[in-house]
């Protein structure tokens, strides 16, 4: 009896360990953003109400690169939306991960920023499709812009010259209610900033 109880506990413990670590499928081409919390349970596993899920670890412990202070007032700059328009980054539904198909665009923008001609400031804009609520999409769009920025920094671009903003779903480029239109609207755009 005691042995079977022990076996039961061991099985449960193993199952929980597996749930916490083992069953997360790694998508290919996903940018690993820093700041993943320790101690999370596995994908799809509901966290019980009342259970702390995200212990606060103090300010600036996440490894993200803070946004530059000197690019705060965007009205002080000329905005060139054409120069890097071809490098627009597309996203999967409800995701801020940079897919492998989009990686060459990010690398091209990073290379441009490292060149003499590209020694300018850059604004990355994050956009969403119609399907999320407004403030959720505003936050998601910002996270997309920040993910592009982190990828640029990882490719050697200077984060001190890159800022971000989110439009949520306020600036859709395709108003149709189709999957293709939604996909076009989920994007990160590059705007070159030069002082007025």
């Amino acid at each position: 009896m005691k042995a079977s109880r022990l076996t039961y506990l061991v099985v449960i413990a193993l199952a929980l360990t597996f749930a916490a670590t083992g069953c997360r499928k790694k998508p290919t081409g996903v940018t690993k953003l820093p700041g993943q919390r320790p101690g999370q349970v596995g994908d799809g596993q509901p966290v019980p109400p009342g259970q702390p899920v995200n212990p606060n670890e103090g300010v600036n412990s996440t490894g993200f690169t803070p946004l530059p202070e000197n690019l705060t007032d965007l009205s002080l700059f000329n905005h060139d939306r054409e120069a890097l328009a071809a490098q627009m980054v597309q996203f999967a539904y409800d995701s801020a991960a940079i897919r492998s198909s989009e990686r060459p665009k990010v690398d091209a923008v990073a290379a441009h920023m490292k060149s003499a001609a590209g020694n300018v400031a850059l604004l990355v804009e994050g956009h969403c499709d119609e399907r999320g609520t407004e403030e959720y999409n505003r936050a998601l769009g910002e996270r997309r812009a920040l993910a592009v920025r982190e990828a640029l920094i990882a490719s050697g671009a200077d984060g001190a010259r890159i800022t971000t903003r989110s439009f949520g779903k306020d600036r859709k480029i395709d108003l149709a209610d189709t999957d293709a239109a939604h996909a076009r609207n989920r994007r990160g755009e590059f705007v070159v900033l030069t002082p007025k």
Binding site: L33, P34, G35, Q36, R37, N54, N56, E57, G58, V59, N60, S61, T62, A96, T133, E135, Y136, R138, A139, L140, E142, R143
Partner: peptide
Amino acid sequence: KRLTTSREDESA
């Protein structure tokens, strides 16, 4: 004061 430090997008 910053309350969260997660990689997720807190909102609303």
